[in-house]
Write a protein that binds this DNA or RNA. Structure first.
Lengths: 116, 116
DNA sequence: ATATGATGGTTACAATTCGTAACTGAGAGA
DNA sequence: TCTCTCAGTTACGAATTGTAACCATCATAT
């Protein structure tokens, strides 16, 4: 019933990072603050889920929501210090992917995906 | 429709690591080879999903399945070189979690979860 | 004053994935 | 034959996700 092997903090971190889209959201904010609509486009996530995930990440203290009352209103999302501290994780994922994943040419037409 | 910002290999890596349970499976195999039933206990994953995930990870070349025809049959799962190369990712997650996540005392009784 | 457009979301609902629990199959021993 | 262990599968309800349509606010155009 209890899994005694794993550090609960590690498990919590993995749970957060494993939540669908979270790693991509954090990665895309490592570069610079972004607006809602920019993120949906660059990440390829729907409005619904981006909204949901940003709220969760804000509650976790990883993302910050900054409102600029211009016209039309501009809202920028950025990483907190806690969020930026995830940069090394992303860097290691990037390193691994470059070393171990094949470069796949962009298929213009739909072809049988090799995995799922 | 197309998200041009992100490196496709990075996205693929994140997709694999973000799949529920995958990070914990890989982490628990970083130490040593493990049997199926040991993993379900230590990770807290169900038979169904562990089986599914191990097959996927094997197909991805990250996990190896070794059959020892003893009695009863012993099957051990271990990481390939590609899988072990994920160790730095796990280490960085661990570092981050130790620095940024609070130690939470184990609550014996069910109490209001702070998130969700 | 009303219509239109942009931004930043919500809501509704179908499709996919997950969790739980019961079941299967192979081989050995009682 | 019956039971036991290990290593999974199967069935099915519950939770999460994806898609698409809709809403609220503010500003400018008509």
């Amino acid at each position: 019933m209890v899994q005694p092997e794993l550090c609960p903090r590690f498990e919590q971190a993995v749970g957060m990072l494993s939540r669908r889209w979270n790693a991509l959201i954090i990665f895309s904010l490592l570069g610079e603050s972004q607006r809602f609509c920019t993120m949906t486009e660059s990440i390829g996530i729907s409005n619904r889920l981006l909204s949901e995930r940003l709220k969760e990440l804000e509650k976790d203290g990883i993302v910050e929501r900054n409102v600029f009352p211009e016209t039309p209103v501009r809202i920028e999302y950025s990483l907190t210090e806690k969020g930026r501290a995830l940069a090394p994780v992303m860097q290691e994922i990037e390193k691994w992917s470059q070393e171990w994943l094949p470069v796949q040419e962009a298929a213009e037409d739909e072809q049988e995906p090799s995995v799922r």
